[in-house]
Amino acid sequence: MKKFQWLYEHALQHKGESLESLLPSPMSNSALASIDDDFIFSTLTRRVFRAGLKHSLVDSKWPAFEKALYGFSPYKVALMNDDQLENLMQNDQIIRHWGKLKATRLNAVMMLEIAEKHGSCAQWIADWPEDDIVGLWSELKKNGSHLGGNSGAYFLRMIGKDTFVLTDDVVAALKAQGVVDKRPTGKKDLLAVQEAFNEWHAESQRPLCHISRLLSFTVGW
């Protein structure tokens, strides 16, 4: 596995002076903890509906989703019964996907349970250590719905939590670095990826999202 400096220099050769401007900016954990859980729930639901669809299509319908789902109040959505969910299937202003609509209610319940234990879902996410970010992915997948694959990581990226994302380019780079030999899905491979990112972070003091993006720039050219 190459040192961080090699990754950075290789990415710099690829992207030139614009490199730093292409790196995402994570939110501080104190700022993240102050976000309202209604916004967290809205963003989580948006990620669920974006999966497999054009993001612009989903985003264009979001005002209608907000109206149909009580302003994304986790408490109100968690109380929706099956008849209310089925009525949403007649609403042509939203994306009528039965599985994802049911997932929305399940995810509202998950958020309420987290908030009861930790004060808010935002606080729980903010407090989760970045050196075990794959553990947070696992918790979202285990306790939520439609949050497997990269959905959990993309959701975290959307709200500003520092995380890497296993895009095709990042996976290709991890293979090239000898960290994994296939797309990491099992616990052993994900822990190996986490350890690699932790090592690069220790060398550079860069956030995980920077390292992730820089890795993606080391392949495909």
Rank of each mutant, 00 (worst) to 15 (best):
D162K: 00
T163H: 02
T163K: 03
T167L: 08
T167W: 05
T167N: 09
T167E: 05
D168E: 13
D169C: 00
D169M: 01
V170L: 06
V171K: 00
V171E: 05
A172Y: 02
A173F: 00
K175D: 05
K175W: 07
K175R: 13
A176L: 15
Q177M: 12
G178K: 15
V179Y: 00
V179W: 01
V180F: 00
D181E: 08
D181Q: 10
D181H: 11
K182A: 15
R183E: 02
P184L: 02
T185P: 03
G186S: 11
K187P: 14
K187W: 15
K188R: 10
D189K: 00
L190R: 12
L190V: 09
V193G: 01
V193W: 02
E195F: 03
E195D: 10
A196M: 13
A196Q: 06
A196V: 08
F197K: 12
F197C: 13
E199T: 07
W200M: 08
W200T: 06
H201M: 15
H201N: 14
A202L: 12
E203F: 05
E203G: 14
E203P: 10
E203M: 06
Q205K: 08
Q205A: 08
Q205Y: 07
R206L: 09
R206G: 02
R206Y: 06
P207C: 11
P207I: 11
P207A: 11
L208C: 09
L208Y: 08
L208E: 12
C209I: 11
C209G: 11
H210I: 07
H210V: 07
I211C: 11
I211G: 10
S212C: 10
S212Y: 04
S212M: 09
R213D: 12
L214Q: 10
L214P: 06
L215F: 00
S216V: 07
S216G: 03
S216F: 02
S216N: 12
F217Y: 14
F217I: 13
